[in-house]
Design a protein around this nucleic acid. Structure first.
Lengths: 111, 111
DNA sequence: TTGACATCTCGTTAGGTTACGATATGTTGT
DNA sequence: ACAACATATCGTAACCTAACGAGATGTCAA
């Protein structure tokens, strides 16, 4: 196939696909999804998020660091607490898609 | 915090988040994203997809198997070829979000 | 300054994922 | 039946990730 059916580029170079895949990989964790959902509703500290997700503080902190590296969030220290909030404007749209679609695509990955 | 700010459930139980994370993890690969994009435009064989993505046939076949296990695609044999096509109705919406958002969220993951 | 609290960082470890090569299965034409 | 083709499966090795515990850093109040 030197000139076949798939010779079109709907959107995105290979490098852009790699980037998008990185962002998706960062989203693709149950605790991180829940954190995104919470932060889309407001502003929370590490401890609050950790408790809601039932994980130790340092684990929550690492998830937040990952997502911050990806540009999803920013953080502000206030006293001894650190508040996180959403920075990436597309997060809301994507989370809406996930809530409307994949949060109900049950019974997958059955052996 | 026995009764704090995060005591609400916007959408989704822990199990649903785990499921959604599984689906997202399946999407979160450059080659798989490209395959999804192509299959949203039409019907392709393993070999066609493999060539477009510049991967060996068996690698493409494994990606397709993963996504099929997740309910994204179905396949039909026609002669010695196997055609794949989209089965999950939400894929289009999610891919639109990704194309409109994450396929241009550059410069992340810089050290 | 001391102690309690909140968060972050680091090293280690267990488990998961990916790509590859080899081999197996299924299909067609001769 | 045989050879060529298209796809699928499997074992292996390299790599990546997540969670944990220990300890470091930063902040507050007394």
């Amino acid at each position: 196939m030197t000139k076949g059916k798939t010779d079109f580029k709907p959107v995105g170079s290979p490098a852009e696909f790699a980037e998008a895949a990185e962002c998706l990989k960062t989203l693709a964790h149950p605790v991180r999804l829940r954190i995104v959902q919470l932060l889309l509703k407001g502003r929370y500290t590490v401890g609050e998020l950790a408790e809601d997700c039932s994980v130790p503080d340092n684990v929550a902190s690492e998830h937040l660091r990952l997502m911050q590296r990806c540009g999803f969030f920013t953080s502000e220290r206030e006293g001894r607490r650190v508040y996180y909030q959403v920075a990436e404007p597309h997060l809301k749209k994507i989370m809406d898609c996930i809530e409307g679609g994949f949060l109900s695509c049950a019974d997958r990955n059955a052996s």
